[in-house]
Simulated assay, not measured.
Amino acid sequence: MKRSGPLYTLLAGLLLAAFMLSLNATTGTKSSGYGSGGAASVPPPPPASTTSPPPSSAAPSPTASTSPTAAAPENVYAGRTDDNTAAVSISVRDGKAVAYYCDGRTRESWLKGDVDDDGSMRLTGKNGAKLEATTRNGKVAGEVEVTDRKQDFTATKAVKPSGLYRATNEVRGAKIDGGWIVLQDGRQVGIFTRDGKPSAAPRIDPSTGAVAIDNAWLIARPVTP
C-alpha cells in the first residue's frame, strides 16, 4: 500500500501533462483556423482605376474643349445648284473659306480661298475648279465651275447637324476619302472615294459623324478652313 502512493502520484502527473498538451494543441488549431479563414474572407484590393480615376475623367473640361466636334466653324452654309443636280457647302472662319461641290455620284471638288471684308469670295480647287460668291443676309449665292461646267447656286446658313463633313483614312490598305453635305432637311449628298475611284457615299450619323466603311467604323469631322 505504501508503494501505491507514489504510483498514483505519477499517474496523476501524467494525466495532468496529457491534459495540458491536449489543451495547447486545441488552442493552436483554433488560432490557425481563424487566421486562414480571416485572410480568405478579405476581398482583394480594388484596381487602381476604381480608387483613383484617371486624370481625363477628373478634368473633363479640357478634353471637351479639344474634341474635333467642339471647335465649330463660325459659319457654315449648305444648299443646291439652281438646276438641282448637285449640292454646295461652304465653311467660313476668320476670313478663310473651304467649299465642297458634290453631285453624289462621280463629280466633286474641294475648293478654298479668302473671304473679303464685303463677304465676297473667290475659291479655287484642283483641275481648274472655281467658285465665286458673295455672302448677304445669311445666304451665299454665286457660281461654281467644276469640270468645265458652270452652275449657279444658293446656300443658306446650316444649323447642326446640317453642314459639311469629311473623313480620310486607310482601311485594309485602301486610301479612303469621303465628303458629305448634310442639308437642312436632313438629306445627304456625298461621294466616297477608294483609291481614287468615286462612288455614292454611305450615310453618316450627323450627331456622331460615324460611318461604316468595309465593316470598319470611320468618323467624319466637321470641316473648318
Rank of each mutant, 00 (worst) to 15 (best):
T124I: 12
T124L: 08
T124A: 14
K126V: 11
N127P: 08
G128C: 03
G128K: 05
K130N: 09
L131Y: 01
L131P: 01
L131S: 02
L131V: 03
E132M: 11
A133R: 01
A133Y: 02
T134Y: 06
T134R: 10
T135L: 15
T135I: 13
R136C: 14
R136Y: 09
N137K: 14
G138C: 05
G138I: 05
G138W: 02
G138D: 05
K139G: 11
K139Y: 09
V140W: 02
V140N: 02
V140P: 01
A141G: 05
A141Y: 06
A141E: 12
G142D: 03
G142P: 00
V144P: 01
E145N: 14
E145S: 15
E145H: 08
T147H: 14
T147Y: 15
T147D: 15
D148T: 10
D148Q: 13
R149A: 14
R149W: 10
K150P: 04
Q151R: 12
D152T: 15
D152G: 14
F153W: 01
A155T: 01
T156I: 10
T156D: 13
K157G: 15
K157N: 15
K157H: 13
A158F: 07
V159L: 15
V159R: 14
K160S: 14
K160Y: 15
K160V: 14
P161V: 00
P161Q: 06
P161N: 05
G163H: 02
G163R: 02
G163A: 01
G163L: 02
L164G: 02
L164D: 00
L164N: 06
Y165C: 00
Y165S: 01
R166I: 08
R166F: 10
R166L: 11
A167M: 04
T168N: 11
N169A: 15
N169V: 13
N169I: 08
N169K: 10
N169L: 08
R172I: 12
R172N: 11
R172W: 12
R172C: 12
A174L: 09
A174Q: 11
A174H: 10
K175P: 01
I176Q: 08
I176L: 07
I176V: 15
D177C: 10
D177G: 09
G178P: 03
G178K: 05
G179K: 00
W180H: 02
W180V: 00
I181K: 03
I181R: 02
I181D: 05
V182T: 02
D185T: 05
D185I: 05
G186R: 04
G186Q: 08
G186K: 06
R187G: 14
Q188Y: 06
Q188V: 04
Q188H: 07
G190M: 00
I191G: 00
F192L: 09
R194T: 13
R194F: 09
D195K: 04
G196C: 05
K197Q: 12
K197M: 09
P198R: 06
P198C: 04
P198M: 08
S199K: 10
S199L: 06
S199F: 08
A200T: 12
A201I: 03
A201Y: 03
A201D: 00
A201P: 01
P202V: 02
P202L: 05
P202D: 06
R203E: 15
R203C: 12
R203I: 09
D205A: 10
D205V: 09
P206L: 03
P206V: 00
P206S: 04
P206Q: 03
P206A: 03
